Simulated assay, not measured.
Amino acid sequence: MRLTVLGGGGAYPTPERGCSGYLIEHAGFRLLLDPGYATLPALLEHVGAAAVDAVFVSHAHGDHCAGLNPLLRILHLDPDHLSPLPVFALPGAVDPVLALDADMKLDDQADVHEFDAGAELTVGPFTLHTASLSHFVDNVGLRIETGGVSLAYSGDGGADPALRSLAAQATVLLTEATFVEDVPPNSRGSLSSAALAAEYANLADVGRLVLTHLWPGTDPDDASRTARRGYAGPIDVATPGLIVDVR
């Protein structure tokens, strides 16, 4: 399984990186995970829009799903694209995105599969285990398994202790680390830090830690150094173009 980072920023895009966005590939199948603001151009550097086989959205915030709109626009305007794109999301999570450009009927390009947190899904060669993880809105983390390896992902629920169970002995943990060390009071329990991500990675005994969803302006080296204090395994920061072979 291969993870390619398309964004990795939280809240809003910056000149350095778009928001959350990840391409997961295995056996020729391409799963687009959380296409947030400004991630479509990065996706198109790797594959064409029609090469995406399915999309998974963890929650309704635009920095995790707004990129679905331009992706569907491309498919709508492509006369050779005939099949709707499977989109997996919590009930109602992608409705606002699909409502954009209503005159173009972009929702016809999406085959939405709604599920409840805790569901197990089969998407192409992947088995997806989902779990509710706390955030300001309903959010799911997931564990993607295929070929004997696993990738755990928090969505924006990296502060939830349930992430430890979801990520137990995962090959790679890709987790939200919005802040470096101290989480502001109004975000505690809903957003995480590099320090807490490292603690959970250590407790879950994961093979590799990838920090993502950094607050705009955060120095990735600061996040990595802070995580190093709590986790001894390999650490990456999700920056556009980062490729992690999950094996």
Score class of each variant (00 low, 15 high):
E181A: 07
T122M: 05
P91F: 11
G62I: 02
L142C: 15
G147D: 15
R73L: 11
R164D: 04
P96M: 11
Q169T: 06
S193Q: 03
A99R: 12
H61C: 06
P185G: 06
S154N: 09
A177R: 10
H81P: 00
D95P: 00
A198M: 11
A89E: 05
L106N: 11
V180K: 02
S165D: 14
R164L: 06
R143K: 13
V55K: 01
L142G: 09
D182H: 12
G67P: 05
Y153T: 07
A177F: 01
L151D: 13
A99Q: 12
L98Y: 13
D182C: 01
T122W: 01
L196H: 09
G141R: 04
I74S: 02
L75D: 00
A117E: 05
P79Q: 02
S58I: 03
D111A: 15
D107M: 08
L71Q: 02
A162I: 07
R73C: 02
V55D: 10
P125C: 04
S154V: 13
L173Y: 10
G157K: 15
T127E: 15
S190H: 15
G141S: 14
S165Q: 14
V140R: 01
A93G: 01
H135W: 14
N139R: 14
S165G: 12
S83F: 00
G118H: 08
A170H: 02
A162G: 05
S193K: 04
I144G: 05
I74M: 07
L196K: 10
D116E: 15
T130L: 02
T171D: 08
F115M: 07
V172C: 06
V94E: 03
G155D: 02
S154W: 11
A198P: 03
A168W: 11
A99G: 09
A197G: 14
L196A: 12
R143V: 12
H61D: 14
S165R: 13
A66R: 04
E145C: 13
D63V: 12
F56G: 03
D108V: 00
S58D: 07
L191F: 12
P86W: 03
V137H: 15
F115P: 00
A195F: 07
S134P: 02
G67S: 04
G124M: 04
S192I: 06
G148Q: 12
T175N: 04
A89P: 06
L173T: 10
L72P: 11
E120T: 15
C65G: 08
G189P: 14
A197H: 11
A177H: 05
D80G: 09
A89F: 09
V149M: 06
L68A: 08
P161A: 10
L85Q: 01
T146G: 03
C65H: 07
T175P: 09
S187M: 15
A197K: 06
A152N: 10
H64N: 13
L174Q: 04
D156L: 14
V123M: 01
V94I: 09
D107W: 13
Q109P: 00
F56Q: 03
L72I: 03
D138P: 15
S58N: 14
G118L: 06
I74Y: 04
G189D: 08
P96T: 12
G155S: 07
D78I: 00
D182Q: 11
L106C: 07
A102V: 02
A162W: 00
